[in-house]
Simulated scan of single mutants.
Amino acid sequence: MTEEEKQNYFCHTHTNLFSQSKCHNCYRGMCHTCLHNNPTICPDCVRTRFLAGDQYKNQKEISYMLSIGAGVALLFHIYQCYTISGIYTSFNFLESLLYVFLGSLTAISAYYMYSEVTIILEISKIPFIGGKLALLLILISLVIGIPLLYLLYKIVVFIKHSLFS
């Protein structure tokens, strides 16, 4: 049997099983196991889409995160201008402005990060302590700054995809 016939009749991922359907993305064969996991796209394409992400979605999320962070920092700046005289001579103002900007970036990045991850939903289903444990996990990740790493990851994926595509 030639390699082309194998691709037509057998699953790309599970080479010992017959294909039941074709992937809508790469048109390779998919067996019943692959169809059970995702009926339209093979596991390789799912993995590729998850790692690369949708370029438009990444761009939109990055612009929302940065604009909301800048908006909150601007509101803080306006508030501080009306409450403190001689604001620009103080280094503490610039430091607190940076903290507000990073804090708002962390909060909005956490929103986008946890909207994609189902672990919080699964943890919250634990009887009795699930909701408190999920809230504790979110608060710890906010304090540590994990959502900022998510924002940096999104920026790197966006730049990598735009440069190499």
Results as ranks from 00 to 15, higher is better:
Tyr64Leu: 14
Glu61Val: 14
Phe18Lys: 12
Asn16Thr: 15
Cys31Arg: 11
His14Cys: 00
Phe50Thr: 10
His36Lys: 11
Thr48Asp: 14
Gln59His: 00
Cys26Met: 04
Tyr64Arg: 06
Cys45Trp: 02
Ser63Ala: 15
Ile62Gly: 00
Met30Val: 13
Asp54Phe: 05
Asp44Ala: 12
Asp54Gln: 11
Gln20Glu: 14
Cys45Gly: 00
Leu66Trp: 02
Asn37Glu: 09
Asn25Thr: 12
Leu66Ser: 06
Thr13Phe: 02
His32Asn: 08
Cys31Leu: 07
Tyr64Gly: 01
Lys57Met: 11
Cys23Thr: 04
Phe50Asn: 09
Tyr64Trp: 12
Tyr56Arg: 14
Ile68Gln: 05
Pro43Asp: 01
Ile68His: 04
Leu17Arg: 09
Leu51Ala: 07
Cys26Asp: 05
Thr40Arg: 15
Pro39Arg: 01
Asp54Thr: 09
Gln55Thr: 14
Thr13Asn: 03
Asn38Pro: 04
Thr48His: 02
His14Tyr: 06
Asp54Ala: 11
Ser21Thr: 10
Lys60Val: 15
Gly29Ala: 04
Ile68Asp: 00
Asn58Val: 02
Lys57Gln: 12
Gln20His: 13
Met65Gly: 01
Ile68Leu: 09
Tyr64Phe: 09
Lys22Gln: 09
Cys45Ala: 12
Thr15Ile: 10
Asn58Pro: 03
His24Ile: 15
Cys45Lys: 03
Met65Cys: 13
Phe18Ile: 11
Asp54Pro: 13
Gln59Ile: 13
Tyr56Asp: 05
Lys57Phe: 02
Thr40His: 04
Thr15Glu: 13
Leu51Lys: 07
Asp44Met: 01
Val46Arg: 04
Asn58Lys: 10
Glu61Leu: 11
Glu61Ile: 15
Arg28Asn: 14
His24Arg: 13
Glu61Phe: 04
Tyr27Asn: 15
Ser67Arg: 02
Tyr27His: 11
Asp44Asn: 12
Thr15Cys: 05
Asn16Ile: 15
Tyr56Glu: 04
Leu35Gln: 07
His14Leu: 07
Met30Cys: 11
Ser63Gln: 06
Ala52Lys: 08
Thr15Gln: 04
Asn25Asp: 14
Ala52Asn: 12
Ser63Asp: 12
Asn58Ser: 03
Met65Asp: 00
His36Met: 06
Thr15Lys: 13
Lys60Met: 07
His12Tyr: 05
Ser67Thr: 12
Thr15Asp: 08
Ser21Glu: 07
Thr33Tyr: 05
Gln55Met: 02
Thr40Tyr: 05
Lys57Thr: 06
Gly29Trp: 00
Thr13Arg: 00
Cys45Met: 03
Ser63Cys: 08
Ile62His: 08
Asn16Phe: 11
Lys60Arg: 09
Ser63Glu: 13
Asn37Cys: 06
Asn25Lys: 13
His36Glu: 15
Cys42Met: 07
